[in-house]
Write a protein that binds this DNA or RNA. Structure first.
Lengths: 229, 229
DNA sequence: TCAATTAAAATTGTATTAAAAAAAATACAT
DNA sequence: ATGTATTTTTTTTAATACAATTTTAATTGA
């Protein structure tokens, strides 16, 4: 459609830096407690300190880094507590999202959701965790987007990303795949039947399972640390 | 307590600027659509452009200003839709907050909440809207803080602030004061009785009333604009 | 050897300068 | 008078320079 008019995909450096750092933190390439030193990052990314600083301000507000005045920024510590806090909020917002989806989802979106359920099932069969994660994100995006509430969309996405690393680990566990496929189907059914209570119940179960998996994961990490000492 | 050891109350300029601009936007001193020009603001606040830019980045992430690349920032437009979206999310999070408060509030906090209810009632009698607003904020802060969920605290505060301007107008209406006092008392009772359902119901009513008042307010503003043309 | 003090190195905080882009104003042609 | 080019101005973006502060290391004296 827009083949002649090139829509100029311009992104300010600060946003490029922001996205880059954000990704590094969320995927765990930058470890909690690691300092973000301006000159160092500037050299690494080949830019000046200015865009680095601006990116750090945004990361700060998002809670991904914490600032110590006159000392600089460091990657925020992810504690058991902070994860539980995020999950608690996420559960409430995911429930809200699916309840609104029951009210508002269009036939077209429902169609897409059905397709996404199948894509997810197909992805589980490939056993490629990356693909599974992508299919999962796509599916949930359809539900959240169907609410038409842009603030909700922004918050849910943000909270989901905070746990990116752990969710990835969760999806690696093949024994859970069948359950996930079933839960997704249940969500779809509840939405098309406009059954809020059922929908909310599935989502709560979904998040509870995730929480349990993450707790296991953290326990493992802790064991590892202990044994290394 | 901390009378000898001065804990250095140092705030980087960017944060001073951030708070200043934030306040100006939330209280309506800076109108939606108004441009935030760096040199202008720098002169006005007597600082260089660097802290201004960093503050703007934070406002951007908070959604209070929108950035148009290579053109600058302007105060975000507050539409009916965007307010409804915020209220929808806020309702869910306020319900979560009071439900958690039912589970977790300590006897001391309950004591404080009781005091805050009385303070609010006293404030309504002064008919000083500023004082009433402060008492109201104080009361809700106690509830939200008692959840111990820092992410929730951060989000609820943020969402509440987005509607600062309108809530102020709402509290001006003396005819609602008795109802508000009663609702606050109901919240307190529900929490000490650990009655989640009742607590959630009061909060929903609370927000619904606010929403109705804000809609009226917006309708008024719209009439005004119409008549000015 | 250890603590205290001082010097230096590293790092952040703030300001300024330079470059790129967009917007506005002006000039020119139709 | 209207529409199109061209120039000027304004503004953002990015880089650099300088000042203030903190951290680290080294040195000195007990």
């Amino acid at each position: 459609m827009n083949s002649i008019m090139n829509d100029d995909e311009y992104l300010p450096l600060r946003d490029v830096v922001f996205n880059t750092l954000r990704q590094e933190i969320l995927t765990g390439k930058m470890k909690p407690g690691e300092r973000l030193m301006e000159i160092h990052l500037a050299n690494k990314l080949g830019v000046s300190r200015t865009p680095i600083r601006e990116a750090i301000r945004k990361l700060e507000l998002e809670g991904l880094v914490i600032m110590i005045p006159r000392r600089g920024a460091e990657v925020a510590q992810i504690t058991w507590k902070s994860l539980k806090d995020v999950l608690e909020v996420r559960r409430a917002l995911d429930v809200l999202a699916i309840e609104l989806a029951c009210e508002r989802m269009s036939r077209d979106d429902a169609e897409m959701l059905s397709g996404a359920c199948e894509s997810f099932e197909a992805a589980t069969r490939t056993k490629d965790t990356r693909k599974i994660a992508e299919a999962d994100v796509g599916l949930h995006d359809i539900i959240v987007a169907s609410t038409g509430n842009s603030r909700l969309i922004q918050l849910v996405n943000n909270l989901a990303e905070q746990m990116y690393r752990y969710r990835f680990e969760y999806l690696k566990d093949e024994s859970k795949h069948d359950m996930l496929v079933q839960e997704h189907k249940d969500m779809y059914k509840s939405i098309v039947n406009k059954n809020k209570e059922a929908a909310a119940a599935v989502v709560r179960k979904h998040i509870d399972n995730q929480e349990a998996a993450i707790i296991r994961q953290l326990q493992l990490e802790r064991e590892e640390r202990k044994s290394r000492r």
